[in-house]
Simulated assay, not measured.
Amino acid sequence: MKIKSVIVIEVEADDFVAAGDHQAAIRRLFEPIMSTYPQANLTFSQVKQRAASQVRPSLRLASNTGNMHHYDS
């Protein structure tokens, strides 16, 4: 059996220097994991936040609002 473990740490950083400091701290914390599990992988990525104007409101469909369809008789 194969299992996969995922740890997510999201950090707010004021600039690239602060982000680098956080990355260095996380790498130091990850070292004991690497010594036990050499196949472990640590990656970093920048999370881009969407502007409020780009967020679309959800579609209101009759199927998910609880409204009944009107049928002609």
Rank of each mutant, 00 (worst) to 15 (best):
M1Y: 05
M1T: 12
M1Q: 10
I3V: 09
I3F: 11
I3Y: 08
K4I: 10
S5Q: 02
S5E: 09
S5H: 07
V6A: 03
V6Y: 00
I7S: 07
V8F: 00
V11S: 06
E12F: 13
A13Q: 12
D14C: 08
F16W: 07
A19Y: 02
A19D: 01
D21E: 10
D21S: 09
D21I: 02
H22S: 06
H22F: 14
Q23L: 11
Q23N: 02
A25D: 10
A25H: 11
A25K: 14
I26W: 00
R27G: 00
R28T: 12
L29S: 06
F30N: 00
E31H: 11
E31Q: 15
E31K: 08
P32I: 14
P32G: 09
P32W: 12
I33F: 04
I33N: 08
M34S: 15
S35W: 00
T36M: 13
T36Q: 13
Q39I: 00
A40T: 02
A40W: 06
N41R: 01
L42Q: 04
F44R: 02
F44M: 08
F44H: 09
F44K: 05
Q46T: 07
Q46G: 01
V47P: 01
Q49A: 09
R50T: 15
A51R: 07
A51V: 04
A51D: 10
Q54C: 06
Q54E: 11
Q54H: 14
S58P: 02
L59V: 14
R60W: 04
L61E: 03
T65R: 12
T65W: 13
T65Y: 13
T65Q: 06
G66H: 12
G66D: 10
G66S: 08
N67G: 02
N67A: 08
M68N: 14
H69F: 07
H70T: 12
H70M: 09
H70K: 15
D72M: 07
D72G: 04
S73K: 13
